[in-house]
Design a protein around this nucleic acid. Structure first.
Lengths: 229, 229
DNA sequence: CCACTAAATGAATGCCATTCATTTGTGACG
DNA sequence: CGTCACAAATGAATGGCATTCATTTAGTGG
């Protein structure tokens, strides 16, 4: 039975000094699961700017170099976090709902999860699925839903990829500042754009991001729905 | 007449030593335009990994600290590069083609430009338009095209945002490795996904990215086209 | 003519990911 | 039961990075 990684960390006292003597400890302090959990906790608390290998090591009460016995790089840790987060994406609707509603539920859930983790998007987008088992499981659930809905085999992956691209791009929108469309002093030179922006009213940008996401998602669902046989 | 930034750099000889004496030079060596051009050249040659303030300074034959008289951070340089690149996006079809074809031409052009510059996407996606005049000009041209095509004012921005989200996400796909969907040893556990992947044949991934982009784009064009009055 | 400011240098600063030598414990093999 | 390979920790480098600051020099406005 491997030691639970929290066994040596005491969250009550902020002593935090790595008071462990040199050499292999009696029972292992670290493992990938513990590193992943600590990384996610750290990101939630300090954001991706505050997420450094040194800070991660500190929360685990360990020297930074110890991490490299379990992961080979910081990117490796991000991959672990990414895959873990993917398990929070809700694919259950593919079992319980008609195809179009299942896609909606999945897409919103997927966007919401990664809107809080946009620095992972460049990592996910080019990550081989073999390196991320939980992500692969999500694809399997979605693919199965598409097949049951009558999609021709060779359209399933392109449709999922297109949806995913839209989802990733939309995740960034959620985090954009509210005044992103204020043209400032240049507004006079862009009458059409400015008028279009003015017609939006002054809902928060998150809401605006939701409007755009909904609009695009409905178009994709409608367009792809027509492919079913 | 300000000095052209290439005047002091000799691309024939790789001497490269910043042999300039301390103190303000007779005529300014740097300006934002020159920095932007050099940054783009550097990125094309060395990629975003090789793009450091020190390397940029070296190509300009200048000490790194000199850059900070003209930009306030590395991010600032990236914003300059981003805005410059946006002027390469082709919006001319909005003047010459019917709306649907104009959107296609613009979207493909936009994707192709930023597929080679994906590290800029996190910057663009949350950048206020007021900080990027050429980007603003692109939005104006696109907005005008949508208005002329009969879009209701308040749908124009959401539609453009949705298209842009799809475009940014799709730009990442272009750069993904060819074997991104190989499930390796886990393939047995994901029959639906594996079958869908197998049905794709073995075209390169760039082509696969094009298939997905085309599929999604057509769905969005069709869906948004229905909004016109 | 003089003060101010702009634009360069070069020397720090502090942070970061990563590597390496070293120490110590564990488990497998003979 | 001993020893030997390996696993897992420490702590001290290493080299690179963006950025800052004091300093120097040169134009510019009053």
């Amino acid at each position: 039975m491997p030691a639970t990684p929290s066994a040596t960390a005491d969250p009550h006292r902020p002593d935090a000094k790595p008071r462990r003597r040199v050499g292999r400890p009696a029972s292992a302090v670290l493992d990938q699961e513990g590193i992943t959990a600590a990384a996610l906790r750290l990101v939630r608390k300090s954001g991706y700017d505050g997420f450094t290998m040194a800070a991660l090591a500190r929360t685990l009460n360990v020297a930074p170099s110890a991490l490299y016995n379990h992961v080979s790089s910081k990117r490796d840790v991000l991959v672990l976090v990414q895959d873990h987060l993917t398990s929070f994406v809700d694919v259950s609707a593919f079992e319980t709902q008609p195809w179009d509603q299942a896609v909606r539920d999945w897409a919103w859930s997927y966007r919401d999860v990664f809107a809080r983790h946009t620095p992972l998007i460049p990592v996910i987008a080019v990550l081989p699925v073999a390196d991320a088992p939980k992500t692969l499981a999500m694809y399997e659930a979605v693919s199965a839903g598409f097949r049951r809905a009558g999609f021709p085999q060779e359209r399933i992956i392109p449709a999922i990829v297109a949806l995913e691209s839209f989802i990733f791009g939309s995740a960034y929108d959620v985090t954009a500042p509210a005044d992103i469309f204020d043209s400032g002093s240049l507004g006079a030179a862009t009458p059409n754009f400015s008028a279009a922006v003015a017609s939006l009213g002054d809902q928060g940008y998150t809401n605006q991001a939701d409007v755009a996401f909904s609009l695009g998602l409905e178009a994709l669902v409608a367009g792809f729905g027509a492919l079913r046989s």
